[in-house]
């Protein structure tokens, strides 16, 4: 289900290089990560998923759902785990995965109580989203430095998240009925 370009040695080398470019915040975004057929299956599962409200006003407001089966299959696959290991140079073990939906008035604030995973993997499943609406994922190191992820529809982003806290920017009223969908995988 992975776009074959991401399984080529040359591509992996480029991804490694990109990942290590900024030592203060290591991340790499892989656009069009899935094959067309896999993307279609994932989207169908996302649209059929049932979401429930998840809200603590001082921390977050959003809806959550179980991860689609196709994504469960992906994260259990050897080729996906190998790809992550090759990019970051360490063995990566998935510890949690969840699907989120953000619409108007939704957000996630940085929480000091929140324990950071070593790595976050963000799968962006939102067609036609403009970051001017908010709803983008960003990280901060707590020293005034902010790192906004440039995720796009169908992209997978690997972030070394230890020592950083993530937030999702408040979704403003121009989103109207549009919703943003993410799957966030925590790993160590």
């Amino acid at each position: 289900m992975i776009n074959p370009i991401y399984l080529k040695e040359e591509t992996v080398r480029k991804l490694q290089s990109h990942y290590y470019q900024d030592p203060a915040f290591r991340s790499v975004t892989m656009a069009q990560f899935f094959t067309e057929k896999a993307m279609e299956t994932i989207l169908n599962e996302v649209m059929a998923a049932e979401f429930t409200d998840d809200q603590i006003a001082t921390m977050y407001r959003r809806q959550i759902s179980q991860t689609p089966k196709s994504i469960d299959t992906l994260i259990q696959s050897e080729e996906f785990i190998n790809l992550l290991r090759q990019i970051c140079g360490r063995q990566v073990e998935i510890i949690a995965t969840r699907m989120y939906r953000y619409g108007h008035r939704d957000y996630k604030i940085i929480s000091d109580d929140q324990e950071s995973a070593s790595y976050d993997i963000i799968i962006d499943l939102t067609p036609d989203w403009d970051d001017e609406l908010g709803g983008f994922v960003a990280y901060t190191d707590g020293e005034g430095n902010f790192y906004r992820l440039g995720t796009t529809f169908g992209s997978v982003t690997l972030v070394e998240s230890r020592d950083h806290h993530d937030y999702v920017k408040y979704v403003n009223h121009y989103a109207n009925e549009l919703k943003r969908y993410f799957i966030i995988i925590n790993a160590k």
Binding site: A57, T58, Y170, N172, Y174
Partner: peptide
């Protein structure tokens, strides 16, 4: 679109 989210 400006706001201030919930805090104490």
């Amino acid at each position: 679109t400006d706001y201030l989210l919930c805090h104490d």
